[in-house]
Nucleic acid binder design. Structure first.
Lengths: 337, 337
DNA sequence: AAATTTATCGAAAGCGCTTTCGGTGAAATG
DNA sequence: CATTTCACCGAAAGCGCTTTCGATAAATTT
């Protein structure tokens, strides 16, 4: 591999000139530049990123933080898809992602500390809840940051148009003739869940549909199991809904399971529409009607928002709302009399 | 944040002593160590990782490589689960993961070059095929490495006992009375797929079951779509199988879809057993019988194997085979006469 | 021919940290 | 009391790179 010192020795130039040649400075002649570049190629020279970072105070790394609240890590298909898209976008610009945790060689430390230690150029936080102390700390810091799927005016954020999403779902069900529409919501601590609730409420209100007691139920943290439980509660209601809008696909899948286990059919007895459009949605039985979040866009926008802050060396607080689509499949159907 | 120079100024000691105090050297008195540590805490001092790496030639980072062959990236639930488990294990030891790609600030470079540039302490490669030039290059290099889900004698590897897996599946079907057992295989370039084929063949042989023409079919790169297509081919066979062992859950889900679309039922008409036990397996209809791979173990073992090489500064070539389990659910049933 | 630009290069300092090695004064030993 | 040991500390070099600033020689201008 070798260093610029080796290169200097070989070519007979100073390390200064070598460095300049490698970095395309204008005050080095084409001829010597060619020589040096050639020598570098010959010996398979690669600059040491740490030395570069130390010297330039730019590490070309982006720290990514997952909340540990809901123990999903990077396993959740939705967040996972976002990260993948984010990664592609940032990679193209030359950034590497580093996944940091709260522990560093036995020392317990905050995410911020970890990121400071690693001297990342920027931070992306995925899958978090507003209240998380660590997230707040990150937002308060001076490191460029973008947070996904959360609402805040203190930093750049990008999330889906969850309000419209809720409305889309309810309207779809309404058009199919449903009037008894329940909502299995995400936990209230999650902005996205909250907005979907709001969308649901607004839509119901606009359609002049009452929300019976118990029709708005907390499904927790979007897991299949919690969705199933919530649905069971719903099924036990005196006046059972004919349709249910579920704030996440995994929960929706759980809900469908509960329905099936109760001896009912989807969509003949109960229609269900999910949220996210994770890959599996189109493979469960029946195929899930759902509100699609554009993970591709979300990831890209987040990347752009972050990189812009990094290169311009100033924090900006943009709120980027990505539109959603309703994907109609087979878990919703006309209400049966 | 500050540096050790600041700390030196504040406490009145030299940077040498500061550094030693922070690193628990024995030749600094308890009293001054206490002072320095206190001052460090007060100012929120954090060591700069790049400076440390530069000086110690240890970066406490591990590079992870995904093959780009089958465009799944980190989206595939199986590899994803492995990485997650790997991450937890390495984090605990103080390592951060860095996801590198083949491009670095416009320059096109190999994975090896990228990792050398970043000066990672070790490399884990996930989701690859034997033939990949980049993987080979990594294996040839002198950086500690472990590769997952691939067989090789040139480096440490960890993968599931795919041979037993294939056998397990076939025997299970046999016990249910099936004699016409087909296999939707993964592409032959993938070691794991190859081993499962071998397991299938051996089991069939041991049971004295012939493998009719067309019963062993290539399902490509484990996608739902490819599984579906393979199953359609199988269904078009003159003598249709009563059971099929599929080399991956996603393919199996596709296969079930094909079966359903053909107006047949699982398992009454055709039994199917998958491979992997991805999370969705227990939520599709019918719930998928499958060979479970222990992603938790795989990730941990990979982490241990890698870290051992890093700390002992010598490459070792261990082959670590992780046992698999058959998870019987509802996609398999007794053959119907 | 003298004065001024211009092109090309290198010395040196600095980024923040580790580590070797030598130097103190105090305590222990004879 | 002289000598050896020990505990504690710091100077300095080094890790590999960037960047400022000055130096030199060649080219240009007057």
């Amino acid at each position: 591999m070798g260093t610029i010192y080796d290169l200097a020795k070989i070519t007979g130039f100073s390390i200064t000139t070598v460095s300049k040649a490698l970095n395309n400075y204008s005050d080095v002649s084409e001829k010597t530049k060619a020589k040096i570049v050639q020598a570098a190629a010959d010996m398979g020279y690669l600059p040491n990123a740490h030395a570069q970072s130390l010297s330039t105070k730019r590490s070309w790394t982006i720290g990514v933080m997952f909340s540990e609240a809901n123990e999903v890590g990077m396993m959740h298909p939705f967040f996972n898809a976002i990260i993948e898209s984010f990664r592609k976008a940032t990679e193209q610009q030359g950034y590497d992602l580093i996944f940091a945790s709260r522990n560093l060689r036995n020392r317990d430390m905050s995410y911020l500390e970890h990121f400071q230690h690693r001297a990342v150029d920027g931070i992306v936080v995925i899958c978090s809840d507003q209240m998380d102390k660590h997230v707040q700390q990150l937002i308060q810091s001076s490191i460029p940051i973008v947070v996904v799927d959360m609402d805040s005016t203190d930093c750049s954020v990008v999330f889906s148009d969850n309000l419209s999403g809720g409305t889309l779902a309810v309207n779809h069900l309404y058009e199919l003739g449903h009037r008894l529409i329940a909502h299995i919501a995400g936990d209230m601590t999650i902005d996205a869940g909250l907005a979907r609730i709001e969308g649901y409420k607004q839509a119901m209100d606009r359609l002049a549909l009452p929300i019976p007691d118990g029709y708005l139920i907390n499904g927790g943290f979007f897991s299949v199991e919690e969705g199933k439980q919530a649905m069971q509660t719903l099924l036990a209601l005196p006046k059972r809904p004919t349709a249910v809008f579920v704030a996440g696909d995994q929960m929706a899948i759980g809900a469908m399971e509960a329905i099936h286990e109760a001896g009912l059919r989807v969509p003949q007895d109960i229609s269900v529409v999910g949220y996210d459009d994770i890959e599996m949605s189109k493979y469960v039985t029946p195929k899930l009607t759902t509100v699609r979040q554009d993970t591709e866009q979300i990831g890209q926008h987040a990347a752009n928002l972050l990189i812009e802050q990094i290169v311009n060396k100033r924090r900006v607080m943009t709120t980027d709302i990505i539109p959603v689509d309703l994907i109609v499949r087979q878990s919703t159907g006309p209400v049966t009399p």
